[in-house]
Write a protein that binds this DNA or RNA. Structure first.
Lengths: 125, 125
DNA sequence: CGGAATCCCATCAGATACTG
DNA sequence: CAGTATCTGATGGGATTCCG
């Protein structure tokens, strides 16, 4: 009976909740940017240096999306040269613990998954 | 000082851990399939009916990937008509709690995010 | 410095048709 | 029933160039 009990939290609405979170954070860079900003406010270039592999374009797009969603605040200072600082909002910070939970799972199971893949790919046929 | 302390869990390896989990579960259907299988073993057609919007093709691809990663087991019975049952492995089940944590965050903050988006899109300019 | 604009390609994912 | 094969359009994301 209670078999589907807690599952309903994740897809009781036909998957709308989980779809919402996936649409929000499941691109290549969002989680990484949020995690990086957890260290405090940071400038654009600083972020760029701290996130290996990200392009200027994708950093901009990711930050805009996060700003739009209210997870990141953007503060531009009227200076020359320009200075722009990004920081997590309270809601942005609240995403860190759930993200850590998931990251923890990834670390714990990474080896097992790699093994499984190797086995699958080496299987006869 | 410990400002970056727990962040290192999420991206201390240059983001490899979080990248691994993202690459694994962050497509359109994986989480939904895992969540649906949490109810117990299920046949292909059953899954297809329980996941609104998924195409046969994407269900197949998603299940193959999950099987390869060792999160889902596939059992084919030599019958006519054919019967194939899918179920979560122990590792697959262990993904549910972290997923729930994230889904919970999504539900709690969904409204606030929608509001933020509306405000952002209505802003002057 | 912090972007915006453009071009281009690779992958994702839907629709449809066919099969053991 | 449980897939596979193929085609096609949509999206994601990198490289490059230009600008206030």
């Amino acid at each position: 009976m209670a078999r589907y009990e807690h599952t309903c939290t994740i897809r009781g609405d036909g998957g709308r909740a989980i779809r919402a979170v996936l649409d929000r954070i499941c691109d290549k860079w969002t989680m990484l940017v949020v995690a990086t900003l957890d260290g405090g406010h940071m400038r654009f270039g600083e972020l760029h240096r701290h996130i290996p592999g990200i392009s200027q374009r994708m950093l901009t797009l990711t930050l805009r999306k996060l700003e739009r969603d209210g997870l990141v605040s953007r503060t531009a200072y009227a200076e020359v040269p320009p200075r722009v600082e990004y920081a997590l909002t309270a809601m942005g910070r609240s995403l860190i613990p759930p993200a850590l939970t998931l990251a923890g799972w990834a670390i714990e199971n990474n080896a097992a998954i790699e093994e499984s893949r190797a086995r699958y790919d080496d299987r006869p046929r």
